[in-house]
Simulated assay, not measured.
Amino acid sequence: MTDTASTFACARYIKEIGRGSNGARALSRDDTYTLYEAMLDGRVSDLELGAVLLAYRVKGETSAELAAMLAAAHRSFEPLHVQDGHEHARPVSIPSYNGAHKQPNLTPLLSLMLAREGVLVLIHGVVDDPGRVTSAEIFAELGIPHAASHDEIEDSLVSRRLAFAPVGVLAPKLARLLAIRRVMGVRNSTHTLVKILQPFAEPGLRLVNYTHPEYRESLTGLFTEHPDAAIGGALLARGTEGEAVTDTRRQVQVDWFHDGHAETLISPEHSQPHAPHVELPQLLDAVTTARWIESVMRGDVPVPPAVARQVDVIAEVVRKPAI
């Protein structure tokens, strides 16, 4: 709901970004920050908020605009404080905002395997998404509760080396903008921002995924042109239906952005007809997926090779000394 006592006028911003795919112009970094901060604070009227979200949906965000929005997003919530037992190890954050509807959602498997390797893992995302199987639903079936406060997130990271944080608990202002999708029917800039969020006060490694090639280009520009956005490091790869876990059918390219540099850690390989069969759950529902994950963790079912390689790469990166 808009804070009518301090309504933020958006006409001059909409005039720039709302001219369509060919005529729209990017806002300056300062204007972008100011506008997105007002949106997060609820100071933009519903009419103007819808106009801004649709304008960016058509225009797309430049890397500078994304950097400014991300800075405002980080100022909108209290970051997490965790201490790891390893001198150089960093915690890992995994966004989970898409779930699955064509392939099994293996983000919880990736998370549990990393935690077993001694890595602190935060998964943040939505609790439910009609028509999709969310990580939150699978974690519930695995007996891993959703954190209900920042203290619970931090406590779970210490006790389990793993925590699932609903975005409404981690960053409620961002959650409010995400929820507008159910009213408008389309995603908005916030769906990109939550996938690149740095939730830790002492910066951790982020898994960042994309679904369309143009997002790879914009995110590469963000992390290379705006080093502040990559503090703590980011592993960028094409996800599985929008989830950060690697595709079990092929090995995708993984790029590591850190300290103003970019390194390709895994080169892409295309799916082959003779590729080894990977045993996956036959049904996509949360119960079936959870039972299958438990069987993998027990060693009764082999780990998909692509996921095993992803775990190895992440575990190696988080233990590299930060420059």
Rank of each mutant, 00 (worst) to 15 (best):
V183F: 01
A230S: 14
E294R: 10
I196F: 09
E154F: 05
L193P: 02
S135Q: 09
V307S: 04
R116V: 02
H270S: 15
Y210W: 02
C10K: 01
H274R: 08
T107Y: 03
V317F: 04
S295W: 01
A165R: 02
G42R: 12
A230Y: 09
T289Q: 07
V317E: 03
P227S: 02
L120Q: 15
V194K: 08
E279P: 01
T2F: 03
S111W: 08
Q282S: 10
I231H: 08
Q253R: 14
A175G: 10
L219R: 04
R29A: 12
Q272E: 13
D312S: 12
V296I: 14
R206L: 08
L207P: 11
P91W: 04
P130Q: 04
T248V: 15
P91N: 04
L54T: 04
E152I: 03
N105A: 07
R181F: 02
I196K: 05
V254P: 01
V287H: 15
T2H: 09
R160D: 14
V44A: 13
E48K: 07
F223K: 08
R182S: 15
L27A: 00
Q282M: 09
P321K: 10
D259Y: 01
V254L: 15
Q251W: 06
G42D: 12
V318T: 12
A234K: 12
S111P: 06
V301N: 07
S76T: 04
A73C: 12
P305Y: 12
E202Y: 02
V313Y: 03
L109Q: 11
T246L: 09
Q282D: 13
A165I: 08
G131Q: 06
V245E: 10
I123P: 00
D46V: 03
V186T: 12
A140D: 12
V127H: 05
I323G: 10
K173P: 06
Y36K: 01
A165W: 02
G50V: 09
H81S: 14
K173M: 15
P273T: 05
F164S: 04
T107E: 01
K59F: 10
A306E: 13
V311Y: 06
K15W: 11
V169G: 08
R216Q: 13
Q282W: 01
V121G: 13
V133I: 05
E61H: 06
V317T: 03
L66Y: 06
G233M: 11
A38E: 01
V126Y: 07
L112S: 00
R57S: 03
L197G: 08
G99N: 04
T248F: 12
D285G: 13
R132W: 04
S218Q: 12
I180F: 06
D41Y: 01
H150W: 11
A308E: 09
G239R: 02
G204P: 10
G23L: 11
A244H: 09
Y13M: 11
T134I: 12
Q103F: 11
I180C: 07
G99V: 07
L54Y: 09
R319C: 11
A9Q: 09
L120S: 13
G125N: 05
A230L: 10
I323T: 03
E87M: 11
S189E: 07
A147T: 00
A24K: 05
D228Y: 00
L122N: 10
R57I: 05
R25P: 00
F77R: 02
V186N: 13
T62M: 06
K15Q: 15
V121Y: 10
R319Q: 08
V318D: 11
A67H: 02
D3V: 09
I123W: 00
T211C: 08
Q198S: 15
E269C: 07
I94K: 00
